[in-house]
Structures are given as structure tokens and as C-alpha cells.
Design a protein around this nucleic acid. Structure first.
Lengths: 270, 270
DNA sequence: CACTATTTGTCCGTATGTATG
DNA sequence: TCATACATACGGACAAATAGT
């Protein structure tokens, strides 16, 4: 029995990479292994599956398995030693747990604003793409302000933010002001009374553009949050899409059980 | 000038394909185009960029551009006609507004329980893996109950659920009972007074085990929710990890602005 | 009606990358 | 390391359908 071989985290016996996908097999395996390393499933110091084990697990040739491990080593995530195996040399960062979570997104929003810097990559007025037009409840191709920003924490990109604002509101502030102030503050300065927001959370993959802007590989998982902010007249005033690097940010929230209910109701605490 | 050629939607300068990536160029272009079609950026009936235009936009050969378009046609998203061009034949669905979003997770939990079926794939008592031990605040390798379930909606797998419960609580119910009743109900029947829960949301990739259980490709994005449920004595009584298919489920919530604050505070509505 | 520009369909030869045994 | 098979990507060539002048 191999000593210290990682046994808590295993691939199931039926593990298969998709032969039909155009992406090379070695790269599919590399991506899966990398994900387990950077997420901490394979902790620092543990031995990950050997070439021969990967051969059996994924039903590929040894060269293919070897190449996947070599790419990991080239990334500096693991070290390979003849006769010993492949050992994880990367310590997975602990996701910012924001010790006392108050209200989901919100307390995070404050700390994020304080601890990060924004760079603006695009700022212009364009015909609203269908989803933005629908969210803002304007006719398709209405001109709207679009901004693409990236948040950095200590020079590490952290989130990719795409916002759409109706033109009349957008004209009330300048590109440079978006660097220093939250968009919501700019909206309120423009006389907008913010009332509520609808928010949706999902997962997606990094494409070429977002991958390069977030300094992750294409195909990495990203946490995607879309939000429509609505003012006191029930008018949508902002449509925002945020992509977060899951290794740097997770959404945390605390839920409280509603007393006296026998179904599965909770309410969020604040 | 070609008539009806889609001109509102262009590729930004940063939207490039990456020669260094192992993923084939034609597939990278195909993915970008497909996204624009299914999102509605390229509306039904419009002409999308010709092979020659893609050639210039992405700086690839005609064969590569042609193959990307052919894949789109094979998907039935576009129709190609010699002398005419490539026309979108797919009508992008209007995103459902989920008119009655109440309290994030909550209203969803109820409807999910009502509209889905559960199959139990594993049910046993094991030494707690590190993260489960930490979450349940028990010494490492303490014996705990582990269950792996998959929720289906109309025979389509929907979520992958892994739960850890302290042994003394777990012994109070049987495997079969997990199929019919929510775990929280079983915990309360065992005398547990549920008080609150800490929840964390992130994104990850499907590995072989979860991919096959959720009927998605390895490497697909998944929405990952981990939750620790705590009783009125501040004892953790359940550690749960849920993986959702993002195409079948998104977390929706409504947020309200807190009056009188000048910072970025919100509270969730209920 | 022909003429032209555009666009897709099909084919060639060649070089490189991927994966197997 | 080698031989082999297949996929990817390039540049180029010609044919056939479409639309506008």
C-alpha cells in the first residue's frame, strides 16, 4: 500500500474524460487535477495519483497521463520525483471567510470596496444587447452605458464586472469617477432612489476574454452573479454581471430558522 | 455593403482566440459564436459573420472559420446557404423572470422538494474526512453518517448532495427515510432544535463521479453550496455539500436597500 | 439579360499536434 | 524512443449559388 497516498479524495472507478470533446485528453486530465490542487482537495504535501493509476482511472496511455502531470509540475503546483511520486507543493489559499458574516453579499461588498482597487477596461455607450435591454426594460438596441471593470486585491484580479446603465443616468458621471466610487453611490448622486435588487447566482466557465482578465486558465470555474437594481419608481437603473474567482471569493451568508414553521423555511439573518 | 448583416454586435478587441491553448481554434470560435446565438446577441434571422469575416476577425484560415460555422449548423443553431451566408435559426429563450422570488434559497427549497425525486447512492458510517470533521467540530476520523443523494426532476439529474451527520443523530433514522423526507425534518424528529446555518456559495468543475451522476461532461461548471446547520446549543448537526447543474438551477434572491445608510448595506427581503 | 461581388462547398498539399502501442 | 494513425490548421484553388447592378 502506498504510504501517504491521498485516499480521502479519489476519482471514482468509472472516471472518464470525454473522448468526443476536441480538447486534448492530457489537458482534460490536467484541468481536473489542477482544480483538486488549487481547491485544496489535494492538500499540500500529499501524493497525487501516479501515472499508472491515472492510466487505469482514465483509461488512457501512460504518455497522456505523464503529460498531464508534467503540465502540473510546469505550473509549479506539484513536484515530481522518480521513485517517489508526484507531491503537491501548492498550499491552497483559505477563501476569505469574512469572520462574522452578516448579510450575504452585503458585508462583503463593504470590505471588498475597502480592500480592492478597480481598473476600468471599457467604458462607452452602445446599443443594449438583448439581455441588458430586457433587464433594464428598454427597447432592444436602445443606447445604454456599458462599463467593464476588473477588481484587484493586491494586484491579483479578483472579479470581472460588466455593468449597463440607462443613458440618462450614465451621463451624470464620468469614466474616472467609476474608479473611485461604487456605482451605487454614483447612481444615488444622480438622484436615483435605490429601492431593491433582484439577484441570481450561477456558475460558468472562463472564456478567453474573462480568463485573461482574471488571470485564470480558460475553462476554469467562475462564480457568476447577475443583479438588476431597481429604484423607488420600479424602474431598473442598473444591470450588473460579476464573475468571481472562486479561489479568492465565496459568497457567505447566515440563515436563521423561522420559528413555528414545519416546512423548510429559513430567513436570512441581519 | 451586405444587407442585413449583423452589425450591432461585434467582437471586442480583447475577444481573441488563443493559439497557445490546447483547445482547437475552431472550437474556441464555435463557443464564442454559440454563446452569442443562444444569448440572443445574434437574433433569429440575422446573418452572422461570414467565413471571410471570421478569417479577418480572429486571424485564422478559412478552413478553421468554416469548421466553427459548420459546428454551429450541426447543432441546428444556424443554417448555411451558398451565396447567401449563415443565418441564425435559433430563437433565444426569454429568461424567465421568476416573478415571485421571495427569499433566496428558501422558496426554491420548497418547490424543489415538491417537484423532484431523490435517489440515494451511498449511505454508510465512515471516518469523517477532514473538512467534515472540522465543520461538525468533532475530532478527525470520528465516525459519522455519510449520505450521497441525487435529486432528479423529470428523470433529469438536478443536484448532487453529500451530507455528514454526527453518528448519534444519524442512527435515529434509516436510509429509506431519506428518500421521502427532508433531512432537516429527520433531524427535528430526532429532537434537534435547529437554530441557524452558515452557508457558502462557490463554483467548481464536474469530476468523473459528479459528472456521471449529474449527466454532464467532465469539466462542466457546477454551482457548489456548502452549509453547516447548527442547533440551539450551538452544536453543528449537519454538514452538507450540494452541487447544482447551472443550466437547471440558479439561486435567486431579492435584496432591499437599508434606509438611512450611506454605505453599501442591503438586507434580504422576506 | 449578362456581369460582378459575395459567400459557401469541395478539393489539394503540407506542417504540426495528439494519442496509441 | 520509435512507428503509426488521426486531428488540426494553414494557404491556395476552383466550382456553384445568391443578390445586386
Amino acid at each position: 500500500m502506498s504510504k501517504n497516498r491521498n485516499s480521502d479524495v479519489t476519482f471514482s472507478a468509472t472516471e472518464r474524460v470525454n473522448e468526443d470533446l476536441p480538447t486534448p485528453l492530457y489537458h482534460q486530465i490536467y484541468v481536473l487535477l489542477r482544480e483538486k490542487v488549487v481547491s485544496g482537495d489535494y492538500a499540500e504535501g500529499t501524493l497525487i495519483p501516479s501515472e499508472h493509476e491515472l492510466e487505469k482511472i482514465f483509461n488512457v496511455s501512460r504518455i497522456t497521463a505523464k503529460r498531464a502531470l508534467d503540465e502540473l509540475a510546469a505550473d509549479g503546483l506539484v513536484a515530481r520525483q522518480r521513485g517517489r511520486g508526484t507531491v503537491v507543493t501548492f498550499s491552497a489559499p483559505v477563501p476569505s471567510k469574512s469572520a462574522e458574516s452578516m448579510d450575504g453579499l452585503l458585508e462583503n461588498l463593504l470590505t471588498i470596496v475597502l480592500e480592492t482597487q478597480v481598473t476600468i477596461h471599457e467604458f462607452d455607450y452602445v446599443a443594449a444587447p438583448p439581455r441588458a435591454a430586457e433587464a433594464l426594460e428598454v427597447p432592444p438596441s436602445t443606447k445604454v452605458q456599458r462599463a467593464i471593470r476588473v477588481r484587484h486585491k493586491d494586484d491579483t484580479p479578483f472579479s470581472y464586472v460588466e455593468t449597463y446603465v440607462p443613458e440618462d443616468i450614465g451621463r451624470s458621471f464620468k469614466k474616472e469617477e467609476m474608479e473611485n466610487q461604487p456605482l451605487l453611490a454614483l447612481l444615488e448622486r444622480a438622484g436615483v432612489k435605490i429601492s431593491r435588487a433582484r439577484q441570481s447566482i450561477t456558475a460558468t466557465l472562463a472564456d478567453g476574454k474573462t480568463a485573461s482578465m482574471l488571470s485564470v486558465n480558460v475553462g476554469s470555474p467562475l462564480l457568476k452573479v447577475t443583479r438588476v437594481v431597481i429604484d423607488s419608481n420600479d424602474r431598473p437603473v442598473e444591470f450588473i454581471t460579476v464573475l468571481y474567482r472562486p479561489d479568492l471569493y465565496q459568497m457567505n451568508m447566515t440563515l436563521s430558522r423561522v420559528e413555528g414553521e414545519d416546512s423548510n423555511f429559513w430567513k436570512t439573518e441581519h
